[in-house]
Nucleic acid binder design. Sequence first.
DNA 1: TGTACATCAGTGAACGCGCGTTCACTGATGTAC
DNA 2: TGTACATCAGTGAACGCGCGTTCACTGATGTAC
Lengths: 192, 192
Amino acid sequence: MRYTDDHKQATRQRIIEAAGRRFKQDGIDGSGIAAVMKEAGLTNGAFYAHFASKDDLVANVIADQLRTQIADLDAVPPGRAGIEAYVRAYLSPEHRDRPEVGCPSAALLDEIGRCGANAKAAYSDGTLAFVGEVAARLAPEDPQSILEQVTSAFALMIGTLQLSRAVTDPALSNQILERGARNALDLMLPES
Amino acid sequence: MRYTDDHKQATRQRIIEAAGRRFKQDGIDGSGIAAVMKEAGLTNGAFYAHFASKDDLVANVIADQLRTQIADLDAVPPGRAGIEAYVRAYLSPEHRDRPEVGCPSAALLDEIGRCGANAKAAYSDGTLAFVGEVAARLAPEDPQSILEQVTSAFALMIGTLQLSRAVTDPALSNQILERGARNALDLMLPES
DNA sequence: TGTACATCAGTGAACGCGCGTTCACTGATGTAC
DNA sequence: TGTACATCAGTGAACGCGCGTTCACTGATGTAC
C-alpha cells in the first residue's frame, strides 16, 4: 500500500461532505461534479476514482447526511426537555438561513422523491433510523407506540422549514416557524 | 391585428401549463426549455416571444399553479366536511403517485426556496391567498383567527406528501399519509 | 542508510451532449383597395 | 368579390457554455534490496 490505509477513505468522505453542503445549497441538479470537487479541494478528474457516477454520489451523500443527523442527536439531552430544545433549534431563523449546513430533508426532500431507487432507499433507511432514535429518546420503554406520531411531526417540521424559506415576508416567515414548533411539539408530546 | 386578440395569450397559457406539468414531474432545474415547448406542441425558438427568460417563465408558472389551486377550492363543498374531503384527497395515494398534476408546493417547495426574488414573491402571494381562502371557508366570520393554524396544517400536508413520495416501503408510505391527514385535520378543526 | 522501483491518488484536457438564448427566415393571417 | 400586401406567431439552426464522463499522464509515496 503506497498511502496510509485510510487516506483514500478520508478523501472520499471529504468529497461526500462537500457534496452535501453544495447539494443543500444549490440543489442536486444545480450542483455539478466540478463544483463539488473544487469545494473538496480536488479537480474533477479524481471523482471517478471514488464514485461510479453522480447517482452513486447522491445515494452516498444522502446516507451520510442522515447518519450525521442521527449522530447529532447524541448531543441532545435525554427526555422531553432535550427534544423540545431540538425542535426549537430546528425551526429557528438560524437553521432557516443556513440550509447548506442544515437538515437534508428540508433542503432536498422533493428532489429526493424524484431520484433513483438507490438514493430513495438510502433516504428511506436513514429517515426510519432517525425517527426511531427520536422515538427511543421520548419513550424508551415503548418507542413503537409513538413512532408514527414522531414521523408525522418530522414531516411538519420539514414542510414548515421549507415554507419559511420560500416566503418573502420575514415577519410571516418567523411566525410560520413559531407556530410550526408549537404544533410539532403538540404532536410529539401531547400531554405537555 | 393579424390574429385574434387572444390567440397569443392562449399559446402563452399553454406553455405555462405545459411547464407546470414538466416542472412538477422533473423539477425546475430538471426541465429544459426545449422539453417544455415540445410538451406545449411548439419549437424552442418561439419561447422568447412569450417570456424574457426561464426565470420569467418560472415566476409565471408558480403564480399560475397557485391560481389554479385556489380556483380548485370552488369545487370543495362549504364547511368542515368539504375541507375534510379536501385534506383526504390531498393526502391520498393518487395524489402521491401523480405529482405532475398535483400540488406545486409538494412537488417543488425546496426548489422554490432557492429561486430568485420574483419566483419567491409569486409563491408567497399565491400561498397567502390560498390559505386565506381555506381559512375563509372554515371560519367565514373570522378567518384571521385560524389563518396561522391553517398555514401550519398546510406545511404538514406538504411535508407529509413529500415524505410519502421519498419513502420506498409502500405500506409505510400509506401509513404516513393516513397519519398526516388525521393530524392536519386535528390542527385545522380542533374540536372535531 | 541510500537508491531504484512499482504503485496509485490525483491532474487537467478532452469527449459528446443538452442547456438557455439568439436570429434570419417562413407562411398563415386579416386588411386595404 | 379578388388580389397584393403588411403583420407577426412560430420555425429551426446556430451560439457559447457547463454538464457528466473518460483517459493519458504526473508525481508523491512506501517497499525492496
